[in-house]
């Protein structure tokens, strides 16, 4: 099963090391090259795109986590009108497809003067993550029995104190999982990147998609770029996983 998960990626790696005329029959022929990587990276825009994507992915993840851990906690621990309303809102917005509001979003960011800037891409991403994360975090906090927090109150801890000292550490694996998912999601995100950026803040996925053009698909370059894009993703994942293991030991 793991093999099945890896197969398409392996195929992509294979495509990335075939010359342009060898990508039709990827499984046939023996010409291999590393030139695709160099060719894909040769354009300065590509290096910029790597930096942009990494920057947006990291910032969006950190900011979204900062604002959603608390709201997920709230959804889990407090019942009442405000909490229900918040949950209702999140639910509602999760249901509406991007298609119906991505163009209004484009016009809105244009109107605010932040179209094709980091901020113009970052804030909508955070808005998306907020919905998703508050909800997942609620699930994690739901899974943690609140008894320990009650015990902390009795010991004279404040609500905030109980949250930070008791609930937060217990939810660490969940937070790390979200960190990975959020980072990878933003790193791979396409639709917003496509619509909300122009020449100044292009993201990697958009650059990759530009290997698909009117005269055909440059499989070899697209794959080479995608393979290189796995690098940073892998580093983030490994780093975060390491942290999970450590976090658990504490």
């Amino acid at each position: 099963m793991t093999l099945l998960l890896v197969l398409p990626v392996a195929w992509m790696v294979l495509t990335a090391i075939r010359p342009a005329s060898g990508v039709f029959y990827v499984h046939r022929g023996t010409e291999f090259t590393l030139g695709n990587f160099a060719e894909a990276l040769a354009k300065p825009e590509m290096k910029e795109a790597f930096v942009n994507s990494a920057l947006i992915a990291t910032l969006a993840t950190v900011f979204s986590l900062a604002v959603t851990i608390t709201s997920g906690y709230m959804l889990s621990r407090f019942s009442g009108a405000a909490s229900n309303l918040w949950f209702g809102l999140i639910y509602l917005f999760r249901c509406i497809p991007y298609i119906s509001w991505v163009i209004p979003l484009y016009l809105l960011t244009q109107w605010m003067g932040i179209l094709d800037t980091y901020l113009g891409l970052l804030l909508p991403h955070i808005a998306i993550h907020i919905c998703f994360f508050s909800w997942i975090m609620k699930g994690f906090f739901d899974g943690i029995e609140p008894e320990a927090e009650y015990a902390a109150y009795i010991d004279g801890c404040s609500r905030w104190g109980a949250f930070i000292r008791i609930a937060l550490p217990m939810a660490t694996p969940g937070i790390v999982a979200l960190f990975i998912l959020s980072w990878l999601y933003t790193w791979n995100e396409f639709l917003f990147a496509l619509i909300l950026t122009g020449s100044r803040t292009t993201m990697l996925t958009v650059r990759m998609a530009q290997f698909v053009h009117e005269t055909g698909i440059e499989w070899h370059l697209m794959s080479a770029t995608a393979v290189m894009a796995i690098g940073p993703a892998l580093i983030v994942t490994l780093f975060a996983q390491e942290y999970v293991v450590k976090g658990l030991k504490i």
Partner: peptide
Amino acid sequence: RTAILLPLMVPPVVAAIM
């Protein structure tokens, strides 16, 4: 564990093209 996460590291659009 890392191998299992590989599909998450390829942009869905590129994966779909592949």
